[in-house]
Amino acid sequence: MSDSDFPQYPTHYSQQPPPGGIPSAGGRLGSAPQIPRMPGTVRAAQVISFVMAGLGVALTVLQGVVFGAERAGGAAFGFLCAWILAALAVQFGSAGPGTRTAALTLSIVEALIGLGGMAAMQPPGLLGILVGIVTACLVGGPGAAAWFARPRPGYPAG
Rank of each mutant, 00 (worst) to 15 (best):
A32D: 03
A103I: 01
S2V: 15
A32Y: 14
Y155T: 12
A69G: 06
A144W: 02
T99G: 03
V66R: 15
L127W: 10
V42A: 03
S2M: 15
L55Y: 13
I84S: 07
L104H: 04
Q34N: 10
R28I: 08
S2L: 15
P18C: 12
P10S: 10
M118Q: 02
P97I: 12
F6Q: 04
A89K: 04
Y155D: 14
A53I: 07
P10K: 05
S4M: 08
M38Y: 04
F6W: 07
R43Y: 01
P7K: 05
S14N: 03
L130A: 03
A89N: 07
G143M: 07
A58F: 13
P123W: 06
G93R: 10
L88Q: 03
P18W: 14
I35N: 00
A102R: 06
A102M: 06
A72W: 00
P33W: 01
G73P: 11
F148N: 08
Y13C: 08
Q122I: 13
L85C: 06
M52P: 08
L59I: 10
G96Q: 02
G116V: 05
R43D: 06
L29C: 11
Y155K: 10
V131H: 01
V134R: 02
A82K: 01
P7I: 03
A86K: 14
S49A: 09
L115Q: 05
G56L: 07
A111H: 07
M121L: 14
R100H: 05
G64C: 07
Q46V: 02
Q8N: 14
S31M: 07
V134W: 09
G56P: 02
R37K: 10
A120R: 00
G96T: 03
A146M: 11
G30T: 00
L126N: 06
G93N: 13
V61H: 05
A103G: 05
L127V: 13
W147I: 04
Q91R: 13
F50M: 12
T105F: 12
Q122E: 10
A82I: 06
P151A: 09
T60A: 06
G73E: 09
A136C: 10
Q63M: 08
R100T: 08
G26E: 11
Q63K: 08
V65C: 03
R71M: 13
V139S: 03
G40A: 12
L62Q: 13
M121K: 15
T60V: 08
P19C: 07
I84G: 02
T105K: 09
V51C: 04
A146G: 12
Q16V: 15
T41Q: 01
V65F: 03
V57H: 01
A120N: 14
G64P: 05
R28T: 10
A89W: 00
A76W: 00
A72Y: 00
P156S: 10
M121C: 15
V66D: 15
A69T: 11
G125M: 05
D5I: 08
S49E: 01
A58G: 15
D3I: 08
T135N: 09
Q16S: 11
L88C: 09
A103T: 08
G125S: 05
Q63R: 00
V134E: 02
I108A: 07
Y13K: 13
T41M: 11
F50W: 11
G96E: 12
I35R: 04
L115T: 09
V51H: 06
G56Y: 00
P23T: 09
I113A: 00
L104Y: 11
G73C: 10
G73Y: 14
P36T: 00
P124R: 03
